[in-house]
Design a protein around this nucleic acid. Structure first.
Length: 586
DNA sequence: GCCGTTTTCGGCCCGACTGTTTTCAGTCG
């Protein structure tokens, strides 16, 4: 992608790791880590910011701003290079092994000169770790196991796969007697686009049977930890599930804590400390008076202030309840304090899907079946948008499109409240042209236009290509704008500020494509496009009936981009939507 | 290194689990 934020994030994170490994100041390492996350999640491209604006990023002060500027100017940072020279790259690689952190990595390097994962594995094999302080037989075993996991590539998993597992686990645990509440939390509840592991919470007085039940699930391949308050397993697919059982009185505080994000929690806990309180997963507590120097610290807990619901906890911190998708410390605390929290869109607000396929091209189900399933979801309108002739493998023709239109018109009105719209998904050619001429396009109720090939154009050519498509009076929506495939293909390079501005100017909506391997636009681009005045549409791009349910991931992504009902055209009543679709036309 | 309604120094979120230890360090989330 065009933004350089990820590059900068990686450099800052590397510096933080190197500081930790070389036993530098832990707070300094944490400061760099925090800044790395803030830069990675910042809505604007850091390479376009002035030095003053860089310092406006939370967690970025004078020193880090200078290093970011140095990196953007020269491609490297001197102090990072110095640390790199002290520590072989392979030592940093060691800390990617689960259970192996910076301290152990440095010990291995200093005492045994181990500087790669492979050398570490060999050293364990040849028993060279024996006698090394802090490394017992169990540690050796854990490291070998961690290396094996690493080699299985088991990185982050897509949100839909994670959701499927989470809902199974929640259903299983909810049916156990004594379960007062059960849900998933963590990055899944925040609807991040990929999920590292699944956090499940149970409210119950007695934890043991829930812990045991988790370890005995059919999908459980391995028990990582089995305690009274927390149990962790790994599923047969390599996904880690953490279960916490909380006293029912702690439910709200626990849910708040385990939903995160880490950065959001640091903010809420800091607010608690400022208010003379302490926030943990068990509740918001008063802090007992500090004992005088030398006196024995009293052991008792402070009085409980709030814990039963998230609402209560936020309320006692002086905040309204904050939707999970916003909890990334991207300004939601400030917005909440200033009464500026967006009333984020919900799945319930969506009145129709405007990008779907049928078996006429590459979908699996025929038009009538897709429409029937859409009507069952309670939609007020539904658009069929099969591919156009330029994707030649889909075999679309003018005649097929016109025949489909007749069928759409014939079926329209047979699904009680739901209206059917006839649309198409056009292909945006390398020059920005689309499949059909204006007079043919005029016959559609709406046109989505997307890039499907020629991903490697130069940034300027790609930008022109999108702008040209926006300027087409019949193009209503730019479909899956960046064309990225999560974990498989990066997005195309364009000057997105220019493209988003063109969308705003021409009245072309940007799609938030809800396919779990796309989620395109993604949250950060949405934030930026909204700032530039663009409108959006949340679509499933469904190729089958089950895909219609992917809408929730699109809505989650839109929430993470702070979108409200007003920003999203497919929450609008049909008359208003039709006005929007026609507004560009001559 | 960052940050400020306990400001320019002295804090920095907090707790669970494991393994190697005899009271705690390291890692993780």
């Amino acid at each position: 992608m065009a933004r350089r934020n990820e590059e900068v994030e990686a450099v800052l994170q590397e510096y933080a790791d190197l500081i930790a490994i070389t036993r530098g100041d832990a707070f300094k390492a944490r400061a760099y880590e925090k800044a790395a996350r803030a830069v990675g999640g910042y809505a604007q491209d850091v390479s376009r910011l002035t030095p003053e604006e860089l310092r406006g990023i939370p967690g970025v002060g004078k020193s880090i701003a200078e290093k970011v500027a140095e990196y953007l100017r020269t491609g490297s940072v001197e102090v990072v290079e110095e640390r790199r020279a002290m520590i072989p790259a392979g030592v940093r690689e060691l800390i990617t092994i689960p259970t192996l952190g910076p301290k152990k990595a440095m010990t291995l390097y200093e005492d045994l000169h181990i500087s790669s994962v492979e050398e570490l594995a060999n050293a364990i094999e040849s028993e060279r770790l024996r006698g090394l302080k802090g490394f017992g037989p169990k540690t050796e075993e854990n490291i070998l196991h961690g290396i094996a996991l690493l080699q299985q590539a088991g990185d982050r998993i897509d949100v839909h796969t994670a959701m499927t597992v989470a809902e199974e686990v929640v259903a299983g645990l909810s049916s156990i007697r004594g379960c007062e509440s059960c849900t998933f939390a963590g990055s899944l509840r925040r609807m991040r686009e990929t999920i590292g592991d699944i956090d499940v919470l149970v409210a119950a007085r007695d934890s043991a049977k829930f812990m045991t039940a988790l370890t005995e699930l059919p999908a459980t391949a391995e028990v990582i930890a089995h305690g009274e308050k927390k149990t962790s397993i790994r599923t047969t697919k390599g996904l880690q599930v953490d279960l916490r059982v909380l006293p029912p009185d702690s439910w709200g505080a626990g849910l708040q804590y385990f939903t995160g994000s880490k950065a959001h929690n640091i903010r809420t806990r800091t607010m608690a400390v400022r208010a003379g309180l302490k926030l943990s997963e068990y509740g918001l507590f008063e802090v007992p008076e500090k004992p005088k120097k030398g006196a024995k610290a009293p052991k008792e807990e402070g009085r409980l202030v709030a814990s039963r619901t998230e609402d209560e906890v936020y309320d006692r911190l002086g905040l309204p309840w904050i939707p999970p998708a916003l909890r990334e410390d991207r300004g939601e605390i400030e917005a909440a304090l200033g009464d500026g929290l967006p009333d984020v869109i919900t799945e319930h607000d969506i009145r129709g899907d405007l990008h779907t396929h049928t078996s006429l091209t590459d979908g699996l189900a025929p038009l009538a079946e897709m429409a029937e399933a859409a009507a069952a979801r309670g939609y007020a309108y539904y658009a069929v948008t099969d591919h156009a002739p330029d994707l030649y493998m889909e075999q679309m023709t003018d005649a097929k499109a016109l025949a489909q239109r007749e069928e759409v018109r014939r079926l329209d009105g047979t699904f009680h409240r739901m209206r059917l719209l006839h649309g198409t998904e056009l292909n945006i050619g390398p020059d920005g042209e689309v499949d059909w001429p204006a007079d043919f396009l005029a016959g559609f109720d709406l046109c989505v236009a997307s890039v499907h090939s020629h991903f490697g154009l130069s940034r300027s050519a790609m930008t022109k290509r999108f702008i040209r498509a926006c300027e087409n009076p019949y193009v209503n929506v730019i479909g899956h704008p960046t064309t990225r495939m999560i974990g498989r293909r990066p997005g195309v390079d364009a000057d997105w500020d220019e493209v988003f501005a063109a969308c705003a100017r021409t009245g072309t909506a940007l799609e938030v494509n809800a396919q779990p391997d796309r989620l395109d636009l993604r949250d950060e681009d949405i934030l930026r496009a909204k700032q530039l005045g663009a409108k959006f549409v949340i679509d499933t791009d469904a190729h089958s009936v089950p895909h219609l349910a992917f809408l929730r991931y699109g809505v989650g992504t839109a929430q993470r981009g702070w979108l409200t009902k007003d920003d999203v055209v497919n929450t609008w009543p049909l008359t208003k939507l039709r006005r929007f679709l026609r507004a560009k036309r001559p």
